[in-house]
Design a protein around this nucleic acid. Structure first.
Lengths: 133, 133
DNA sequence: CCTCAATATAGTAATAATTATTGTTTTATT
DNA sequence: AATAAAACAATAATTATTACTATATTGAGG
């Protein structure tokens, strides 16, 4: 979340940001790479990782970690909750107001200084539910 | 969470469970390995991983994933919330009642079938706070 | 309490995700 | 246009975890 750092706007960085802003699927670095290489065949996976890292460090995008083996990225930097399908791993937004009172409640019970909180739901997505029945 | 599976009680498995039950520090597999090898020098890291996996699959312990690069384990299988220190990575319990109404609220807003939820706090632990000032 | 098949083990190799290195190219400022 | 800083592609290295394999242990049935 370090702001004010003047990033150079390279073709690669611009495309990465552009493509991430087009989707709401919370892609992994490799998901992004697969999409990006169609438009820029010489882009390297390292560049994708490095830029997603830089963009999230500067607060332009957010890195999310909702279980599974890979990190995911989201161009929506507002505080919002996620739900993850326990079968296919897909991650979706849950459009509810964040419960800020959870922080006040927890602060009474812990010696830690609470900075923020995350709520994650685990469930089954419509597609996987269909396949089950 | 598959119950009824009859596990063989090996010395290794017993010790792993015993040591995990002694702590509230949510150790990683490697943390466990470092402690265990003092009491059983020939135990292998693979055995630690395999048993922590089996024990969590059968619901005897729980595997937790609160960000960071390593999975953590907890002998306390009740639903409870965690807080993670953003500086040192330490994870502690937050002893508050789970807010089950979060699930009902989210269920109205998503097509996913909600199975459960997790709340994770991010903050600074007392030790790291001391060092900062 | 012995036998034996199933399961677990130690040790090691393999895999997956991510990060680091390096020599070259690009950016954007002078 | 010159140039220094930053970013790039390609590749190597690292970290966490899982898989493999030959040997050893467990516990049920006799």
């Amino acid at each position: 979340m370090i702001a004010g750092s003047k990033l150079r706007m390279t073709k690669q960085r611009q495309l990465i940001l552009e493509e991430l802003r087009k989707v709401t699927s919370h892609p992994t670095a490799d998901d992004m790479y697969q999409v990006l290489r169609k438009k820029m065949p010489k882009i390297s996976l390292g560049t994708v990782y490095r830029n997603l890292e830089i963009l999230s460090d500067t607060g332009i995008i957010q890195k999310i970690d909702v279980g599974g083996t890979q990190k995911r990225f989201d161009a929506d930097i507002s505080t919002h909750y996620h739900i993850r399908c326990t079968i296919c791993g897909r991650v979706a937004d849950v459009h509810m107001e964040p419960h800020m009172e959870l922080e006040a409640e927890a602060q009474k019970l812990t010696d830690y200084e609470i900075l923020h909180h995350r709520v994650e739901y685990i469930g089954i997505c419509p597609e996987c539910r269909k396949k089950q029945s």
